[in-house]
């Protein structure tokens, strides 16, 4: 094993096609898109189920089903159905992030102290005020932990994009394997790991910022 690929300055050029910074950028792009789409879909559903208690089986089973679904297999299926491109990749990654976000939104709402919610209603908050001023802020720590685990998973898994001809850090792994350049594979693995740590750190800071100190 050697780190020559990683530490070769030529691979860190900002302009060269396929350089590490460019791959990071495309990788992060897939991650962010998948998280945004996944959140838009899973958050309202999770909040609704958690709030009303209706369809709890969906929230629980989505968590289990999602964990056992092979992203690579799903991706290949999507490519067969839709052809190459960004869309099948985003679908596969979004399916990956939905379960943790949905389950944690559900759990966050389910585990709320009902006495506090009761007090909020009793003081004359309207249902949407109860949701935005009380329930969401209180559920935030649990919801954030689900979002962080979704982010970590999708950072690692977004490498599959390279398997269907897209960019992202998966390029280093797949191209490296194809030409037996293990130094390149190692560089890919390390950069993905560092990216995951950095992303989690950023989210941890965001969490400190948006979660009330009263809930720590």
């Amino acid at each position: 094993m050697n780190l020559s690929y990683l530490f070769d300055a030529a691979h860190w050029s900002l302009t060269a096609d396929g350089s590490i910074p460019q791959l990071i950028l495309s990788h992060v792009w897939y991650v962010v898109l998948a998280l945004i789409i996944g959140t838009i879909i899973a958050l309202p559903v999770g909040l609704y189920i958690g709030h009303t208690g209706r369809g709890s089986f969906l929230a629980i089973n989505a968590g289990n089903a999602g964990r056992s679904l092979p992203t690579l297999g799903l991706l290949m299926l999507m490519v067969t159905l839709l052809g190459l491109g960004l869309t099948p990749v985003l679908i596969a990654l979004t399916v990956l992030v939905i379960p943790p976000i949905l389950t944690s939104a559900y759990a966050g709402m389910r585990t709320l102290d009902h006495r506090v919610v009761d007090a909020a209603r009793g003081m004359g908050m309207r249902p949407w005020q109860v949701l935005f001023k009380v329930e969401l802020p209180m559920a935030l720590p649990v919801m954030m932990s689900g979002f962080r685990s979704a982010a970590l998973q999708v950072v690692a898994t977004a490498t599959v994009a390279a398997a269907v001809g897209l960019n992202g850090l998966g390029r280093l792994l797949i191209d490296g394997l194809a030409v037996n350049d293990y130094s390149r594979v190692l560089a890919g693995a390390i950069v993905v790991a560092v990216l995951a740590v950095v992303l989690d750190l950023i989210l941890a800071l965001a969490q400190r910022w948006i979660v009330s100190p009263g809930l720590r």
Partner: peptide, 20 residues
């Protein structure tokens, strides 16, 4: 909601908002 805003409401364990 309007009715409840005119009626003070105190419950056991206070039910304070932990995030405020």
């Amino acid at each position: 909601a309007l009715l409840r805003r005119k009626i003070g409401y105190v419950i056991q364990h206070a039910g304070l908002f932990p995030h405020r």
